[in-house]
Every structure is written in structure tokens, then in C-alpha cells.
């Protein structure tokens, strides 16, 4: 019997939990990772792998077509597009993932508290969240950034504020249904404290919908982030940034379409990859859910 227990414990401690295997055998997750991992590598290594200095202007080489000395061509100031895209990945991913991390940090506790407390507390917290949600996402981001100065941290913060109520909503509804389960009542019957019930009984069982929601939101956060920098409310020059690159390219599309095409493609692939991973996560973790609200 002793051996029996120990072998059980071992399998509990197996280094790779089965859910990771299920994720890695999901087609969408794999395709998403194939696109997203290189983006992450670009974001982390940035200047060290960029073939040229992304800020180095060279007026003689402006509007260069792809394939020559500059693999993807140059922009209106003769800067290397490939290098700018590589370095620009950092800002884009930082804003996308950072803002959702912030939204999770803010939204999850609120949702847990509201869903478990029910009644007045729930009503009050959720009405507050509703107010934030009823301002269209881009407008709220714009409003916050119009007041704060534009830099990476503020953009991340603004998008985090935009998405925190949505995370809170999902957390709340998962918490609400989890707290109807009799294991929660069993814990109450044992006289467990509220913090134990919230964080030890309920939280482990509501992570799936929260993770799924968060991962689906990353794509939207990236879109909002680049939209804001497209409007000139992003990090601003000289730091390369995909949204701002597209804004600049707009004035020069008739001279060189590549200037527009490359950052658009990078953006599209990144958003698609996060969407694929989000959907794959939903398939694996939360198979009953089929859709969500924006």
C-alpha cells in the first residue's frame, strides 16, 4: 500500500501536466505558436538580431524595394523596414500582453468578490464595471491617453483599464456558478474562512474561463494599442512601432506599397496567432463555451 501511495504522488508531480499535452496537440494552438514564438523572439532580442539600425535614416535609399540590401525594403526616410518591424514587435507585444496582465490583476479580484458576495456588493461592483464597459473601447483609451502623456506604460495602463471590467465580468459569472456548487457549501459547512473559500476552493476551478478570456483579449488589446499609436497616441518616434509605421506609410502608399504591407502583415499575423491560441485554449479548457461578448 505504501508503494501505491508513493507512485500516485509521483504521477501528481509529473513535470508536464496533461493539459499542456492536450494544448500542444490542438491544431489551432500549434499554428498560433508557430507565428507567435518568432514574434516573441524578435521582441526579446530586438536590436541584436536586426540587420540594420532601425532609426538610421538614409535619404538616398528611400523607397527601396524588397530583396536588395534591405530584405524588406526601406521607408520614406530610407530606414530598414525589417529592422523596424523586428524592434517594433517589442512595443506591440508589450502593450498587448502587458495590458491584459494588468486587466487580469484588476479584474479577477473584483469578479471573485462580486460573484461570491452576491447581493448588494455584486450589484454595486458590476454596475461600476458596466459604466466602464459602456464607453466604446477605443474612445476610452483615447480619453485616458488624451489626459495622460503618451508612453508605453500609459498606453498599457489605459488598455488595462479598458479590459479589466470585461475580465471581471467573466470571473464573476464563473465564480457565481462555481459558488452554487455544493463543494462550496460543504466548505461553508466546515466553517472555512471567506478567503479560503475564494482563493482555495473557488479560484482553482474558475481559472479556465479566465485564462481563455484573457488570451482572447490579447488580440483585441494589440489592435487597440496599434490603433492608438496609429492615431499618434502611442509611444511616438523614434521608437519603431507597427501602428505608427502604418500611419506613416499611409502618406507614401503610392510610392511604395511595401512600407504599408510589411507592418500590416506582421500585425495581422500576430493578432491572428493570439486569436488562434485563444480559441485553442477554449477548445481544450472550456469546451462548453462557444462564444463571448466583446
Amino acid at each position: 500500500m505504501a508503494t501505491d501511495t508513493s507512485s500516485q504522488t509521483e504521477s501528481d508531480r509529473s513535470p508536464i501536466p496533461p493539459v499542456v499535452w492536450r494544448l500542444l496537440s490542438n491544431r489551432r494552438v500549434v499554428i498560433g505558436l508557430v507565428f507567435l514564438v518568432p514574434m516573441f523572439v524578435m521582441a526579446v532580442l530586438g536590436e541584436t538580431i536586426a540587420p540594420h539600425d532601425p532609426t538610421n535614416t538614409n535619404v538616398q535609399m528611400r523607397y527601396d524595394s524588397p530583396g536588395g540590401k534591405f530584405l524588406l525594403g526601406t521607408d520614406h526616410l530610407g530606414r530598414d523596414l525589417l529592422s523596424r518591424i523586428i524592434v517594433g514587435a517589442r512595443t506591440t507585444l508589450l502593450i498587448g500582453f502587458g495590458s491584459i496582465a494588468l486587466a487580469l490583476a484588476g479584474g479577477v479580484p473584483i469578479g471573485l468578490a462580486a460573484g461570491y458576495a452576491k447581493g448588494r456588493t455584486d450589484e454595486l461592483l458590476m454596475r461600476l464595471m458596466d459604466i466602464v464597459i459602456s464607453i466604446p473601447t477605443l474612445l476610452l483609451g483615447l480619453l485616458i491617453l488624451a489626459v495622460l502623456s503618451s508612453n508605453v506604460i500609459n498606453v498599457t495602463l489605459a488598455i488595462g483599464i479598458v479590459y479589466a471590467p470585461r475580465i471581471a465580468r467573466v470571473t464573476r459569472s464563473a465564480t457565481l456558478s462555481a459558488s452554487e456548487e455544493s463543494y462550496v457549501m460543504a466548505a461553508q459547512a466546515r466553517g472555512e474562512s471567506n478567503t479560503h473559500i475564494l482563493f482555495r476552493e473557488i479560484l482553482p476551478n474558475v481559472t479556465s474561463p479566465i485564462v481563455v478570456e484573457g488570451s482572447v483579449r490579447v488580440g483585441y488589446a494589440i489592435m487597440i494599442g496599434t490603433s492608438l499609436s496609429f492615431l499618434g497616441l502611442g509611444t511616438g518616434p523614434p521608437t519603431p512601432d507597427w501602428g505608427f509605421m502604418i500611419a506613416e506609410a499611409r502618406d507614401h502608399i503610392f510610392q511604395t506599397p511595401w512600407f504599408l504591407v510589411w507592418p500590416s502583415l506582421a500585425l495581422l499575423l500576430t493578432v491572428m496567432a493570439t486569436n488562434l491560441i485563444g480559441d485553442g485554449l477554449r477548445d481544450v479548457l472550456d469546451p462548453k463555451e462557444t462564444g463571448d461578448s466583446r
Binding site: 456548487e181 455544493s182 463543494y183 460543504a186 466548505a187 482553482p204 476551478n205
Partner: peptide, 10 residues
Amino acid sequence: FQDPEGSLNP
């Protein structure tokens, strides 16, 4: 409880 699965934390 009635529902044994629900009464045990999954």
C-alpha cells in the same frame, strides 16, 4: 449532498 461530483472540489 445529492450530487456527489459537485460536492467534491474538482
